[in-house]
Amino acid sequence: MTQVDDILNPLTRQRLMPPGSWDWHIPTPFSQGWRVGDTIFVGGQLSADEHGNVVGEGDIEVQTRNVFDAVTRVLEEGGATWSDVVKLNTYYCCNETGDAVREFWEKMTRVRLEYLPTPGPAGTAVRVAGLMYEGFLIEVEAIAVVGSGKFLAP
């Protein structure tokens, strides 16, 4: 495509692969994210180093911060910020019961709130039995619309 084609086609796609992002341990065609027009789709981010190894094993606060930093890098690569995020899906592994589940969720959420503006995006949090490999406690995906950080009050 030429630059003229890019301007004329509002649905131009841009693959988002920020430097320093984690990668799969085998070659795959997956992407960290895509920008399509003004919409950014951030693929599931894990608490992993560049080689896909778990960072912060057993520590939901470390993993949550690492995951949200990874989402931030993908958003920035596409020209967006957390204010542009309109949908946030969080998947987390907690094998605890009772008060321990609440404490786990509260630790995770305190870190998430460091990144989210007010009002925040539509959100979903799903407790799952497991993620890609043992040791991963949280995975987050997001959808952002570039420039949508300004909103009309209801």
Rank of each mutant, 00 (worst) to 15 (best):
Q32W: 00
S47Y: 01
V86Y: 01
T64I: 04
D84Q: 02
V140C: 09
E114D: 15
E61A: 15
A122V: 14
N95T: 13
L46H: 10
P19I: 02
V145Q: 13
M108D: 03
G78F: 02
V85E: 06
G33E: 00
M132Q: 11
G123K: 11
M17W: 02
G37H: 05
D69W: 01
R102N: 13
P121Q: 11
P119L: 09
V74A: 08
V36T: 12
V36R: 04
P154W: 02
L11Y: 13
G120N: 10
G43E: 13
D69H: 11
G123F: 08
E50Q: 10
F30N: 13
V85Q: 08
T2A: 07
E76L: 00
F68M: 15
I40Y: 01
T81A: 05
R35H: 03
T12C: 07
T97K: 14
S83L: 06
F41N: 02
F30S: 12
A80P: 10
A129G: 15
D23H: 13
V140D: 06
V36M: 07
N89Y: 05
T81Q: 05
D6F: 05
L88G: 04
P117A: 06
L46A: 03
E96R: 13
H25K: 10
T12V: 09
S47E: 00
L75C: 04
I7S: 12
A100D: 15
G33N: 03
Y91C: 02
C93P: 00
M132Y: 13
